[in-house]
Amino acid sequence: VPDSESYAYRLVIPNKEVREVFILQIQEWFKAVVANENETMKLLSSAILDKDEKQIARQLNIVMSRMISILDTKAPDDMKENFYHGLLLGLLRGSNPDWLIKSNRESGDGFSDILIMPEDPDAGIVIEVKYAKEMKELDAACEAAITQIKDKRYDETLRDEGRCDILAYGIAFCRKRCRVVGEKF
């Protein structure tokens, strides 16, 4: 097909084997990106454990400014949260091999975006991701995420595992920026 803007291209993964290779390549890409951002990722991981919301946002904003294009988020508004969820999940998994990280895990009365069980057997982390259409909506989106974690009791699975030192984060994204609100449960 000639290289022209008048043609549309669609990626189709024809079978399970090709899908697995595709996923492995994406995982390898994330590992390479995380390796290049080693210091940033160390600061991000420490900030998450230390409940340092400003540092979490700072490091995520640095990574996004270096890694993604505004075109990466070119999807319908109701799908953009998925992009940021996947980005955050890939960054966390790639930089913290000793953390048990679960995505879309049933907990309480719903499905939490990200549950983290760090090495410390008493610690647990719940992250709810939100998308804001405009920068001025970031704070409200963070608060909505924290409220959702509380209302739906997303910390329940962590408590069932005997984890009692729980941190909850609402992280809202807009284009290549984010804001973070944290709370100790």
Rank of each mutant, 00 (worst) to 15 (best):
E53A: 15
A32C: 04
R66M: 09
A35I: 04
K74C: 01
K51P: 14
I26A: 13
V34E: 03
K54S: 11
K54V: 07
L24K: 07
L71E: 07
L60T: 02
L44K: 00
E37S: 08
L60S: 02
S65G: 09
A57W: 02
N61D: 11
I68H: 01
K42L: 09
V34P: 06
L44T: 00
A32D: 15
S45F: 05
R66P: 00
K42P: 00
V21Y: 00
S46A: 13
L43G: 04
S46V: 13
Q59N: 13
T40D: 10
R58N: 07
T73M: 10
R66W: 03
V21Q: 14
L43R: 13
L44V: 01
I70M: 05
V63Y: 02
F22I: 07
Q55W: 00
V33P: 03
I48Q: 06
M67W: 13
V34Q: 02
F22G: 02
A32V: 06
I48C: 08
T73G: 07
V33C: 07
R66D: 03
D72R: 02
K54G: 12
L60Y: 01
S46F: 06
K54C: 13
M41V: 04
R66T: 04
K42G: 05
A35G: 08
E37P: 00
I26C: 12
I62L: 11
K54R: 11
E37G: 00
L43K: 10
K31V: 05
D72C: 04
K42D: 03
A32T: 15
I56N: 03
L43E: 12
K74S: 07
E39S: 12
T40A: 15
Q59S: 03
E28Y: 14
F22T: 03
Q55C: 12
I68E: 01
I62K: 03
K51H: 10
F30Y: 11
M41G: 01
I56K: 05
Q55L: 03
Q55R: 14
K51R: 10
N38S: 15
S65N: 09
R58I: 02
E28N: 14
L24N: 09
N61E: 11
N61C: 12
A35S: 12
A35Y: 04
L44D: 00
K74F: 09
Q25R: 05
I26F: 15
S46Q: 11
M67I: 15
Q59A: 01
K54H: 10
N61Y: 01
F22V: 12
I68K: 05
K74Q: 00
